[in-house]
Amino acid sequence: MKALLLALLVLGGTAQATQLEIHLNGGQRNWSSGELLSHPQARDIEIDEDVSYKRPMRYRAVPISVLLDGVSAGDHLQAVALDGFAAELPAATLLAREGAKAWLAIEDPQNPWPPLAKGKPSAGPFYLVWTDPAASQIGPEQWPFQVARIRQLAAVEQRFPALLPAADASAEVQAGFAAYQKNCMACHRLNGAGDAEFGPDLNIPHNPTEYFTGEFLHQYIRDPQSLRRWPQGRMPGFSEQTLSAMELEQLIGYLQHMAQRKITR
């Protein structure tokens, strides 16, 4: 079913999932677009700088926290999109009452959102958006659109030990691992580990630190199209506001470290 929905989206069809699956430890609940639009806590919200549309947007949305019954701040969640994008999301961020606030925006079939680009579908039917994202340093990979399901999972470290740095790795490499989880893992696997079905593996067969020389890897992460310009390119650039110079160095340090820890299957 997922493959069929994705095929329709790729072909430019208008059919989209109208059911959101939420898998929590306490069980599964499916929400229809209609149920969510009429939810008692649904309201109209304004997003000043929408990450996907690159302009202000207005949505009918519910606080994501009201859909996460039984989830606590120490838990871990993942939002999976129709195209295989899989955003790792600490529950503490989604449940926070101060700082950035997470909302599930619901596309009204009677009043559809605009396409993300020419020939592309919209961000619907479900889109995780944030008000005041800068207050909690919410990155662009934490704005998954075309969300099909949200599920409660064990932490990344438990699910994917192949991603872990060596036990004696420096604090900078450990910080780079955290930057990888926040900014890269939604699209990429590494050592075959991860749930994303979107971008290439970042260690197998070769790590980008092995073929990008000098400052080219820095440039590629900041502005991918400046090095590889092609219409289907989907990797976003990571500005200093999203990924500071220090965080970028830590991320590259983690990748360099993992280039020496290849795991093939």
Rank of each mutant, 00 (worst) to 15 (best):
I204C: 03
E172A: 15
I204G: 02
M185I: 09
V173M: 09
A186S: 15
E172I: 11
D168V: 05
M185Y: 01
E172W: 06
G194C: 05
G214A: 04
G176R: 04
A196W: 04
P208R: 01
D195Y: 11
F216N: 10
D201Q: 12
E215N: 14
N203E: 03
A169F: 13
Y180K: 08
G194V: 12
A196I: 10
P165S: 07
M185H: 12
S170P: 04
G192Q: 05
H218C: 04
F216M: 12
C187Y: 07
Y211L: 01
Q181R: 10
E215P: 02
A193W: 08
N183V: 05
A171C: 08
N191E: 01
F177I: 08
A175G: 09
G199P: 00
L202A: 03
S170C: 10
H206V: 01
A178M: 06
F216R: 13
N203C: 07
N183Q: 13
H206W: 04
Y211E: 02
Q181W: 03
A186C: 07
A169Q: 14
Q174I: 12
L190H: 04
P200G: 11
H218R: 14
K182N: 03
T213R: 07
C184H: 05
T209Q: 01
K182R: 15
A171E: 15
A193S: 11
Y211G: 03
A196V: 08
H206E: 12
P165G: 06
Q181K: 14
F212Y: 14
E215Q: 11
K182P: 04
A196M: 13
P165M: 06
